[in-house]
Design a protein around this nucleic acid. Structure first.
Length: 673
DNA sequence: ATGAGCTAGCTTTTT
DNA sequence: GCTAGCTCAT
């Protein structure tokens, strides 16, 4: 038997792995090897035949984390096990359960999963028909309230309103219409995936029993980020065997804006009797200096359990704290540092972590200029690009004829002379006759109620959809299907005819999509993936600097980390403080903690005095977090209000010099020749 | 029905 | 500085 993985664990990790029975809470500090513990625990359960792989439920928050865990488990178990079938995100596992019991939620098994974009379009449509002025009340706000209700586990009829919530009272009606509309469309939003499951478990104890009896062992990653409905979901699934193991770190709770309730974590032992608690406090990632800075910073939070991270590694280098004149200089400074680190470290092991994704732009421009390769993780999601959504919409219309949202999306793309008036007409007919937009269009054409020019366009689309559906039934492969659709719909031609850079990009993206489709056996599994995935897996091949938000960096680690833009208003973010006050500030501080603790070797924190933001130059102050860092562990340069505050002009010369001398700049000059 | 031209609001974080 | 969404002319 392959038991090596057990010897590589420390005393507490081993306890966490081997204590399989009963509720267990693992308080795991940053870099304490929690993924290792989780994967070893799964391996331990399987190897000791405590359960079959399909009797283990392992839940993560992101697809990335799920994939990582799947890989690591397979590695330990080698050939013995292909994978853990119930390892996935809350959303993907819920979708899997819901497909099997869709009827119990009033849905068909082939329901569509809609994203925020579609949600918003639906809300806007409802606002229009209910005569709600979207200028006075933002649809986004309505959506956030509905999401909040769903996170609390409320269907429209369950919503409890306080007297002072006058605005929300109006939203309740929208929620009702919205929810009915989703059922008519045979669709779910993200919140529904989990909510429907919980409601099904609640109303059908026999269904809940199937799963709770099956899942002998349940493991949950990032437990501090679960919300109310997710904790309820877990509660149902763990109710029979009660072998629930949750791993989390209260200091890394950064998703309260998405409804995460830290109290799930803090009160775990109150909900689950006889909970064992294991603390993992030995850090295997960072140097003493980095841990000291991170620990000192997070101590400023009142609301936390408190822990003492320690490491046996050496002091390492001091944390660089740099001040720049403006964002552009900051990008130059960072790229210069990258050039010098490059001699010893690979670009892949360097990362720039920002508060908001727009901050990456300045760095991109600089990197393009001097030729440093980079990749952006997160950001504009691949599957949210218009051309990709168009492709998916076409496929969905073929796959699920009730998918009106997709139909509406593609009915006039490319142009078929079907404008707003016609779409409105189709919608009204569909509403009156309780049918899908596609059927309504067909009937309207038959009745000759559509203007000649529009009729030709609309009719050709309807014919094509039927043809494609026929192709699909004949088991044409899904990649071929999309290619056929793109050609026959005129979509390809539309892109080819407009010869600008943007369109070439679009064509590239579609090629990438077709390529990504190869990984899936059929249309069905591809569409499921698309609904729940956000990005195509970025190639980690090649040497590139990584740019991403601090949120996206959770769970990752890098030798060199840059943390730019530590300025009041940007970080901590003004809106966060305005909306949530002190608790918002503490969450920002936890985010800073997450950022710093991604670092293995060298951390570089920086801020700039001046920044171009929303079309204006704004002066900025160093973040209050900068003052909270311990001086002993810092190496400062160019800080304001110190000896060098009078050589501003001199500094300008220095910046100029360094720019000319930077290796990237020289390379850039060479390329120009 | 469609494209050009203008304005207001915007950027926090994501399954 | 940018873009989604609106108005207006074709």
């Amino acid at each position: 038997m392959n038991n090596n993985y057990l010897y590589n664990l420390n005393k507490y990790q081993k306890i966490a792995v081997e204590n399989t029975e009963g509720p267990l809470l693992i308080v795991a500090g940053a870099g304490s090897g929690k993924t290792k513990v989780l994967t070893s625990r799964i391996a331990y359960i399987v190897e000791n035949k405590k359960a079959f792989p399909n009797q283990i439920l392992a839940v993560t928050f992101t697809n990335k984390a799920a994939k990582e865990m799947q890989n690591r488990v397979s590695k330990i178990l080698k050939k013995n096990v292909i994978g853990i079938p119930w390892l996935g995100t809350f959303h993907s596992i819920s979708a899997k359960i819901l497909r099997k019991h869709a009827k119990a939620a009033g849905l068909n098994f082939n329901f569509t999963i809609i994203d925020q974009d579609d949600q918003l379009r639906l809300i806007k449509n409802i606002c229009k028909s209910e005569n709600i002025d979207t200028k006075k009340i933002s649809p986004n706000y309505i959506l956030s309230v509905i999401d909040k209700w769903k996170n609390k586990g409320w269907y429209p009829n369950d919503v409890i309103l306080k007297k002072k919530d006058i605005l929300e009272k109006g939203f309740l009606n929208i929620y009702k219409i919205y929810q009915n509309k989703l059922i008519d469309l045979n669709a779910c939003d993200f919140g529904d995936l989990i909510l429907h499951c919980v409601k099904i478990f609640e109303k059908n104890s026999e269904i809940a029993e199937i799963y709770s009896k099956n899942f002998k062992y349940i493991l949950v990653d990032e437990y501090q980020d679960t919300n109310h409905i997710q904790s309820k979901w877990l509660n149902y699934l763990a109710s029979y065997h009660k072998n629930l193991c949750c791993v989390g770190d209260d200091d890394q709770s950064i998703y309260s804006w998405r409804g995460a309730e830290i109290k799930n974590f803090l009160e775990f032992d109150k909900i689950y009797k006889n909970t064992k608690i294991v603390r993992l406090e030995e850090n295997y990632r960072s140097t003493q200096n980095i841990l000291a800075v991170a620990s000192k910073l997070i101590k400023n939070n009142q609301n936390r359990v408190g822990k003492n991270l320690y490491t046996s590694s050496d002091n390492g280098e001091l944390i660089n704290l740099d001040c720049y004149r403006n964002g552009k200089d900051e990008a130059i400074g960072v790229s210069d540092r990258i050039e010098s680190y490059k001699k010893k470290y690979s670009l892949n092991s360097m990362s720039i972590l920002v508060r908001a994704i727009f901050q990456t732009r300045e760095f991109e421009e600089r990197f393009l200029k001097i030729g440093i390769p980079y990749r952006i993780i997160g950001g504009i999601k691949f599957y949210e690009r218009a051309e990709i959504k168009d492709c998916v919409a076409y496929l969905r219309v073929v796959f699920q004829s009730k998918d009106d949202l997709s139909f509406e999306r593609i009915v006039n793309v490319p142009r078929r002379s079907v404008g707003d008036t016609t779409i409105k007409q189709i919608n009204e007919f569909a509403k009156k006759n309780k049918c899908s937009l596609e059927v309504a269009s067909k009937k309207l054409i038959e009745k000759n109620l559509i203007k000649p020019k529009t009729k030709i366009g609309l009719n050709s689309l309807i014919q094509l959809i039927e043809k494609w559906r026929n192709d699909y039934l004949k088991k044409i492969n899904h990649i071929k299907l999309l290619q056929t659709i793109l050609d026959e719909s005129g979509y390809s031609e539309m892109l080819k005819n407009k010869k600008d850079l943007e369109n070439e990009n679009r064509i590239e993206n579609i090629k990438e999509l077709l390529n990504a489709m190869k990984e899936f056996d059929n249309l069905e599994s591809f569409l499921e993936h698309v609904a729940l995935a956000t990005s195509i897996d970025k190639d980690w091949e090649g040497q590139k600097v990584n740019l991403m938000t601090m949120h996206a960096s959770k769970g990752l680690e890098f030798d060199i980390v840059f943390l730019p833009g530590w300025e009041e208003g940007l970080f901590p973010n003004q809106k966060s403080i305005e909306e949530k006050g002190e608790s918002g500030l503490e969450e920002e501080r936890r985010l800073a903690y997450v950022g710093i603790t991604r670092t293995k070797k060298i951390a570089n924190i920086s801020f700039s005095m001046n920044r171009f933001y929303q079309g204006d130059w704004i002066d900025s102050l160093p973040s209050r977090f900068v003052d909270e860092l311990p001086n002993d562990n810092l190496k400062k340069s160019n800080l304001p209000n110190e000896e060098n505050n009078n050589d501003f002009d001199f500094n300008q010369d220095v910046e100029f010099e360094t720019e000319i001398k930077s290796p990237g700049w020289i390379r850039y000059q060479k390329r120009l020749k």
